[in-house]
Design a protein around this nucleic acid. Sequence first.
DNA 1: AATAGACTTTGTACTCATTATATTATAACA
DNA 2: TGTTATAATATAATGAGTACAAAGTCTATT
Lengths: 139, 139
Amino acid sequence: MISKNMACIKSFLIENDIKPSIQRARIYQFLVDNPIHPTADEIYNQLNPELITLSKTTVYNTMHLFVEKGIVQPIHVEGNEVRYDADFSQHGHFKCDCCGKVFDINIDLNTSSITQLKGFKIKSIQMLMSGTCEKCSCQ
Amino acid sequence: MISKNMACIKSFLIENDIKPSIQRARIYQFLVDNPIHPTADEIYNQLNPELITLSKTTVYNTMHLFVEKGIVQPIHVEGNEVRYDADFSQHGHFKCDCCGKVFDINIDLNTSSITQLKGFKIKSIQMLMSGTCEKCSCQ
DNA sequence: AATAGACTTTGTACTCATTATATTATAACA
DNA sequence: TGTTATAATATAATGAGTACAAAGTCTATT
């Protein structure tokens, strides 16, 4: 899911039952173009120079809406902040304790065989690893 | 790892390079006896009536120490709080969006086959699912 | 046992991500 | 065009977690 133009994002939002606005479309485009799992604060700081009247509350409202409508996943890497990911292909995350980067890790998660989950409705699955990445391990 | 008496916990802490104190031992015992993935606040509220001078800072200090020494795992279920788990057997967690409970899920996580992780040093692996549990799904 | 030094606990004040609320702006529609 | 619904914004409030300094506790040494 690489960059989409605004017209394309507009119809994508409508498809997902979200009334489009410039703010919403640009925030979503930013997430798709920058799969760096940004926080609400980072989104705000990146887009503020362009959307000059953007408010942090709007970013929070928009992220809540996106999560509710299922077009963005919240990622809880650390306890004090939420990160967001517009990539819904099944993948996990690796957080490097040294450089702080969050890596996407392709992974197959098969939950159908877990008997404990009989009767459970699974809405999202996340896998999170931590440690040191290759670069930081080499130093 | 069911309940241990205090003497047993004392030596366990020493084994793990932690100087024992009443606060530390009781907090650890509480975690082992109550595998409900409590927050620091919940630990504080549960133990405060007994350890009458307990301070929240002590709970935070202790949890940080336990995590650093590797006898407790932090769990990031939601973005605004950290939960703690003294169970180090490999398992994942399922958070019910309806009743809020966090379930332990036995699961096998095999990361050795993931080529992306070549050269990475994995310190911890967590798997987190969300949705509705069996009880809440039936209603 | 007394003293000193190191470590632990505690209370207060603070930070900062997020939320609540109320107001203003924009879009939709009769 | 006027009216209503929805979205965006600014400000204030909340609450988990942290920083810091003072007070308490433990332990080793004399």
